[in-house]
Each structure stands twice: as structure tokens, then as C-alpha cells.
Amino acid sequence: MAILEILKLPDPRLKEIAEAVADFDDELHSFISDLEETRQDGPAAVGIAATQVGRMQRIVIIDCSQTRKPVPNHGRLVLVNPEITEWDGFELGREGCLSVPDYTGNVIRAEKIKVKALDQQGQACEYEMEGFEARALQHEVDHLDGVLFVDRLVSRRTDLFQRKVYRKGGKQKKRSG
């Protein structure tokens, strides 16, 4: 077990696209333990992605079971090669990031999503998520694609306009997915 170093903006590795995981071996499990320990070490993070510690593989952990006000959640999830297959609705919410210290801002995310992934043994799993948990997963999957929440910031003044744009994009994604 070890606490790993979190990459911080402007580290260029945070903009890289991660590779799919192929081997579900002891080394992977050991890394996932370290990743979880690293998540818990920081300031109340509900999620972490492997790319945030410089491992360019598609692994995320989310855990929305400890929020101040309880939200619908699936407990702690380790998701390997996660893929969001459906998006529905849109919601503005405030986000921060272990990789972007001292800053929070408003981001629009889908309200409900469906996600397909593998667990850490390589078994296929599928979840429907909503609200805060859906937001957390979208934030982490973005990390695997080299996207940070600061790449998605919107101002409150323009949020009505942005919402319309986002809805259109969401529907298009649904059709192609």
C-alpha cells in the first residue's frame, strides 16, 4: 500500500488519453489499492482516475456514499474500461479536482447515465446512475479522455444558452451510441 503522487495542472499527462486495461493480475489489484488509498488521503474526493497518478490506463474509482446529504449511489465502485452508453437530462453543478487545487467551478453534466464497465476481476458490470454519482463518473471518465472540468466550465450568466447546446449534443451522442 502506498499513497501515490497526484499529477497537477499543467502536467501534460493529464491531457493524454488512457489505454484500455487488458491484464487483470495481482499488479493491477495492488495498483487499485494504492489508488483508493490515494483518493482517501486527499480532501474528501468522491472519485479518482488512474491517469491522475500518471498511470495511463482506463481505471476509475468512485464512492458517493459519504456525502453530507445522502445521494443515490452504488457504494464504492472500481470500474475498469468504463464506457458511458446513455445520457439523459442536464444539470449544472459545482466541481473541483484533486489535480486542480484551489479552484471550483460550474460544469454541466448529464443528469442520468448508463455505464458499462469491467470490475477489477474483469467481470462485466452495468450501472444506471443519477445526479451526484452520475456527475462523479462523468468527471472521472473525462480524466481517462484527457479532459479536466476546467475544460468544461460555464458561467452562470450563460448557463441557459449552454444548456440548450448541451441537450442537443447529448441527444446526438445517444443516437450514435
Binding site: 474528501a44 472519485g47 453530507r68 446529504k69 459545482r94 466541481e95 473541483g96 472540468f149
Partner: peptide, 8 residues
């Protein structure tokens, strides 16, 4: 409304 800031 409360704001629950997501840190991830």
C-alpha cells in the same frame, strides 16, 4: 439550495 461540490 445546498451546494455539494464534487471533488474528483
Amino acid at each position: 439550495s445546498p451546494i455539494e461540490t464534487l471533488i474528483g
